[in-house]
Design a protein around this nucleic acid. Structure first.
Length: 557
RNA sequence: UGCCUCGUGGUGUAACGGUAGCACUAGAGACUCUGAAUCUCUCUGUCUAGGUUCGAAUCCUAGCGAGGCAGCCA
């Protein structure tokens, strides 16, 4: 579970490497700047792995910074969840490269304000009295505001009164004086400050003017000595403004530079805070950490490991092409890691009883089973065997299709680590449901024994009825029924109503001392992890991912 | 509509003017006391048209297509 990925290579790392080679900066410094207005998702994980990965690979540091410049949307609750998720993802990997306690854009409000005053004094910003609607319309038309040419003194006075709380929300703004005819609309005198009489989660009521993203973000990067400010594609058109701000304030080198990469898209899921929050608020899932969610907390609860997520981030790469990654790649990444690391156990999800008619009543055997065939050091364990067993309902068919290797009337199958059995009789209830199979066991076929050589085509898992432990198992499937739920129409109409199935399973006794840190393979079924709500007296398991199942796949077609 | 960016198999990526490679997926087979894993093999690709060059996925031009931006959100 700790196998690390090789060093990635992509166009951003190429730039960083070149800057390092050229000695452009003393130390590489990146940052991860979430807005605390929601939970982190797998797209953020991509960004975290990029920014912390670069810090790690180039001997630099990466700052965690809450981009908290909009008090009406942000909450302290989110800060906490963000920190939990980031630490979980980077601990033991890049935690040595964290630039200290989390930073907050709001800690720089004073400095942002001073810079704004500098800008006004330099004649590069002005207070505008237009309404939001007017500002909008003028910007579209490239029309100059009537307030654009106010004197520095008047601007200083009005800006001070904005800060002093004299005006209502939206009454005035501070705007950069750039170029109302610029082809890039973000250069058409963008708003730097707006009035918001709102309580901020950290600064309280100290401020009633709040900086806009471009102003705050650029200056935060500069203040923190960020060298490479890496963001997603939608900020590409903001880059000229980013550079303009640094120029306009005549800030000395070294300056940060912005680079953009494509955000992650994943099939059968939605990755946007807006949509994730809808799923939570409309109770279409059970909270932010619902294991079907692609939030980091959801993935964690489902049983995905930080290293698997990092490997996934490595596998998808970094480009500027807005691609659609196949969920199958995430699943493959998990299977690949868990196959090597997971402890094997026998668990029957949907039990059907088997009685071995020729096996002595009251007799119990201890059979030896391998804990992990991929890892010889993991040793063996004992599994109890008796006259009454449970097998998987799917492993018996009364009238099976061709090439069905499991149990059928009159047919034989091997019980893993035990004996070959033959199905003699099918017992049904009045409704015609199969409730019990009466079988005979070939006592010469005991696994590991001298006469175990006889081959049958199928091997199935089982547990001893007398020793089985009941456990709740939550079986998850993809949350959406279509590969691109937000391609057309309402994504919520594509929710998979069968994305969660809860069963009471029968598990072998050795699973009783399972621990939450470990991953388990329930043989022939999938990889499972203990849910945080699990208790020793009643285990709750989450299926992280199924095993590949070519048989099931073949049956569908 | 304007501006910006991006186009390599079904998907995700590599090739930095010199043999289009890797991974996932799909299919076929071998092996198998997990229909898993492992191991073979196979299918499928440089958006189009010009140009530069001994040689172009790569450089240039045009076209086509896709995405992003046009909040007092980030």
């Amino acid at each position: 579970m700790t196998a690390e990925t090789p060093t990635p290579s992509d166009f951003i790392r190429d730039i960083v490497a070149e800057d390092v080679r050229a000695g452009k900066y003393e130390q590489i410094r990146t940052r991860f700047p979430p807005e605390p207005n929601g939970y982190l998702h797998i797209g953020h994980a991509k960004s975290i792995c990029l920014n912390f990965g670069i810090a790690r690979e180039f001997g630099g540091i990466c700052n965690i910074r809450m981009d908290d410049t909009n008090p009406t949307k942000e909450e302290a609750e989110y800060v906490e969840s963000i920190m939990t998720d980031v630490r979980w993802l980077i601990d033991g990997w890049a935690d040595k490269h964290v630039g200290g306690a989390p930073f907050y854009a709001s800690d720089y409000f004073e400095r942002f304000h001073e810079c704004a005053l500098d800008l006004v004094r330099a004649g590069k910003a002005y207070v505008d009295d237009m309404t939001p609607e007017e500002t909008d319309a003028y910007r579209r038309q490239g029309k100059v505001s009537a307030y654009r040419d106010r004197s520095v003194e008047e601007n200083l006075d009005l800006f001070a009164r904005m800060k002093g709380g004299e005006f209502s929300d939206g009454a005035r703004t501070l705007r950069a004086k750039i170029d109302m005819n610029a082809a890039n609309v973000w250069m058409r005198d963008p708003v730097l400050y707006r009035i918001r009489h709102a309580l901020h989660h950290r600064t309280g009521d100290k401020w009633c003017i709040y900086p806009m993203y471009d102003w705050a973000h650029t200056l935060s990067d500069y203040i923190e000595g960020i060298t490479h400010s890496i963001c997603t594609l939608e900020f590409e058109v903001h880059r000229p403004l980013y550079d303009w701000i640094l120029d306009a304030l005549e800030l000395p080198e070294p300056r940060p530079h912005q680079y953009e990469f494509a955000r992650l898209n994943l099939t059968y899921s939605v990755i946007s805070k807006r949509k994730l929050i809808q799923l939570v608020n409309e109770k279409l899932v059970n909270g932010w950490d619902d294991p079907r969610m692609v939030t980091i907390s959801g993935l964690r609860r489902r049983g995905v490991t930080p290293s698997a997520l990092r490997t996934f981030a490595y596998n998808i790469g970094i480009t500027k092409y807005p691609s659609m990654t196949d969920m199958a790649l995430l699943e493959h990444t998990m299977r690949d890691e868990f196959n090597r690391a997971a402890t094997r156990r026998l668990v029957v999800l949907r039990p059907i009883k088997v009685v071995l008619t020729n096996y002595p009543e009251g007799r119990t055997e201890e059979l030896e089973a391998i804990n992990n065939p991929e890892n010889p050091n993991s040793g063996t364990r004992k599994i109890p065997f008796g006259r009454e067993l449970y097998i998987e309902r799917d492993d018996f068919m009364e009238t099976p299709p061709p090439k069905f290797f499991r149990l059928r009337p009159g047919g034989e199958v091997r019980l893993k680590y035990a004996y070959i059995i033959k199905c003699d009789e099918v017992v049904k209830d009045v409704a015609g449901n199969v409730i019990e199979l009466r079988c005979t066991v070939d006592l010469d076929s005991k696994s590991g024994g001298p006469t175990a050589g006889r081959k049958v085509k199928g091997t199935i898992h089982w547990v001893s009825a007398a020793h089985a432990i009941d456990a709740e198992v939550r079986l998850y499937d993809r949350l959406f029924t279509v590969p691109e739920p937000d391609a057309a129409g309402d994504f919520k109409s594509f929710i998979n109503s069968n994305s969660l199935e809860v069963v009471t399973a029968k598990s072998e006794p050795a699973l009783a001392d399972a621990c939450p840190e470990k991953r388990y393979q329930f043989e022939r079924l999938g990889y499972f992890a203990l849910d945080p709500d699990s208790r020793p007296e009643k285990q709750i398991w989450n299926r992280t991912v199924t095993l590949r199942d070519t048989w099931a796949k073949a049956q569908k077609t």
